[in-house]
Design a protein around this nucleic acid. Structure first.
Lengths: 218, 218
DNA sequence: CAAACTTGTTTAAAATTTTAACAAAGTATA
DNA sequence: TATACTTTGTTAAAATTTTAAACAAGTTTG
């Protein structure tokens, strides 16, 4: 580790991407790579890669480049992927169900330990190795297990109240799939707002303006 | 409409958020709002809102502010939400299923007209008012229906080949839920990469660095 | 009519990204 | 071993983008 300064958000957001490319290279059996070659693969400049990595320390070697497995592990450490933050999923509808089964939480610093829904038709359902519990049990569950993260897959109108309640129960981070914006500058609370609807609208804009997009790339 | 210059990506990405807040205000029956009040609600500056909107024209009135319904409609027009781009969903696993049922495509410029999967156990399944078709039928379907958008909810290893094939079949935009990065500077192709895994890793970093996050907000 | 608002627009400041450059340290090779 | 080559870490500077501030001009309101 090197600097004590605040690392900028754009840099942080690029780390998972580096991690992905390095994982792929690792799986392909590649041993080492230079910032130059990685940059052409990723569509960045070598300079940016070196500068991003240098926010955290020097992981490469002059004349050699980066050892892929080592760099992969280093970035994993920076992201803290070996954490085991306990997570609860609130809302086990279609989306919640998919989120619970689709993401590899264990590889990304989380341990999904509880799923809750208010719909009696869903309560009791088995998802992965968890049984959906009633929302009525959420409070007691939090007192017992002290999860640190909540994944919100509930209707937007309940988001604000639910988030407030969860904060009072000790939740420290939200992965928010509702349309509601959870304030990102809440005291000591971490928030990732996903907002799939926004993404879809952005795509709509892009398609409507493809000519301009081309213009931009020139 | 006003300027011919290219509007920057961050501005575009904020439009759906404005749209959301205005929709909420509209539903609450509020008639008008000033950039000042909207800014405090959204946690932005009034200046930024006025400058963002001015990329597209002047929709307000001095001394009055903005008419909420009018501004809501204007932003909808800018985004092109009344388009009816034909969309196909590739991959009807948990995630694809959720995406198909959870998003209100009609309100966001799209019309989901086909769902495809290669798993025989899934083909024939009913999702909303659509029946899952076999991937073998995709090509013919595209030739018949000419969809302009593809939603990718398939394993990452098939993403590249599938995207290439779809482009050759006339697809103009991708909503990509795979881990693979679809090149965003492809000819005249629009891409929205969702990358839920990246988002989760970013959340992990944030929680591991909550102290620093607080520091940042000071 | 005058005071209070609030926009559209300009100008300035701040932050971020990109590019360039290069000494130092390693690798490869003869 | 010596020499040429590679490539990092780091600094500095330029370019771009984003954010904020400021204000004239037009509206509303009492």
């Amino acid at each position: 580790m090197k600097k004590n300064e605040q690392v900028s958000t754009p840099v942080i957001k690029r780390l998972p991407r580096y991690h992905r490319y390095l994982e792929e290279l690792k799986n392909m059996g590649v041993i080492r790579i230079s910032s130059k070659e990685l940059s052409t693969r990723m569509g960045l400049t070598a300079s940016q890669i070196r500068q991003d990595l240098n926010c955290f320390g020097g992981f490469g070697q002059q004349g050699y480049g980066y050892n892929i497995e080592q760099l992969y592990n280093e970035i994993g450490n920076i992201l803290g992927l070996s954490s085991k933050f306990k997570a609860v999923l609130i809302g086990a509808g279609n989306l919640g169900h998919a989120v619970a089964t689709h993401l590899r939480f264990e590889d990304r610093g989380f341990d999904l330990i509880g799923i809750f829904d208010s719909n009696p038709a869903v309560v009791g359902q088995q998802i992965g190795n968890l049984t959906v519990l009633s929302s009525d049990e959420l409070e007691q569950f939090c007192l017992n297990e002290s999860p640190s993260v909540a994944i919100l897959c509930i209707p937007s109108e309940y988001a604000d109240a639910t988030a407030k309640k969860l904060v009072s129960l000790g939740i420290k981070g939200f992965w928010n799939f509702t349309q509601y914006d959870i304030a990102t500058n809440y005291k000591g609370i971490a928030v990732e707002n996903v907002h799939l609807g926004d993404s879809l609208m952005t795509l709509c804009y892009q398609i409507n303006n493809i000519d301009n997009i081309d213009e931009e790339t020139k």
